[in-house]
Design a binder for these strands. Sequence first.
DNA 1: AATACGGGGAG
DNA 2: CTCCCAGTATT
Length: 333
Amino acid sequence: MPWRETVDPYRIWLSEIILQQTRVAQGLPYYLSFVEAYPTVFDLANAQQEEVLKLWQGLGYYSRARNLHETAQFVANELQGVFPSSYKELLKLKGVGDYTASAIASICYGEVVPVVDGNVYRVLSRYFNIDTPINSTKGIKKFKELASTLIDTKNPANYNQAIMEFGALQCKPQSPYCIICPLNEGCEALKNGTVTSLPVKLKKVKVKNRYFNYLIFNIDGNKTVIQQRTGKGIWQNLYEFPVIESSAKIDIDGITGDQGFMDLMNGMDYEISLYQEEYVIHKLSHQHLYTRFYIVEIQKNPLISEEQKVIHVSTIAQYPVPILLGKFIDRFY
DNA sequence: AATACGGGGAG
DNA sequence: CTCCCAGTATT
């Protein structure tokens, strides 16, 4: 991995943010494009947030990108481009939690602080046969303390990366091949037959259904309308087409009768058609989005609100959008 | 202590 | 389908 070839705090920080809740295979190309686009923390700090979000597009958990940018500006402008040099100080950076602060401090500065990520939880819960839920307050404290007693004080960087890689490759979630495991003699879970039931995690989230009806305006054949998502919720600061969210499935009548739609049309002539009968079901970890697209043909600009804008379709690719819309745009334009 | 926050890959 | 990923911030 390229981030194993450096101890530059900027690059280690960048890689760790990208890899939060993200598989190495998925994050690697993003890391490479970020390093190329922003070789230093100053380059990242000087970028527009929209450009950063565009590079982040498709990686998910977009607050990471917003915090990444904000922290880059903080380090560049307030700290003269020099990252904090201890676990305690790193922890104060936005987007840097216990895991990331430990990773940077150990890898870059040799500080003796253990990382406890999903891999470490799995390895430790199995080796010591601990069934305390890893996402409970007690579990988080217990595993961090246990990890502190195990870390190699002579080479914390190597130890931390080694135990994570051991968890990813050998002590993996499903079907770990315990028969060839170098640690099988001391593994308490193997001894007790609890390997497959560990680690224990508290209840999973319940999924909510939402219905998104996107309006794809076709103005003069070469323009459309987009808007930036603001406020709370998913996809903050990303762009999207005007959308009518409904509490259940609706069709053309539901769209044309919608107040927001009528405000937008402002009495002008239009032709509306359903792009595709079948709903595109976009699954997030905590929401299932049932989406449909309506094509709205008009000859002049609709009455757009403050946060909406009319753009030429040729420029649509420069806007950061959720992957759901990125796929639609690729098909449609 | 719970919940929100993405998208994808593996089985 | 389910699980979970080199987690963090907010409520």
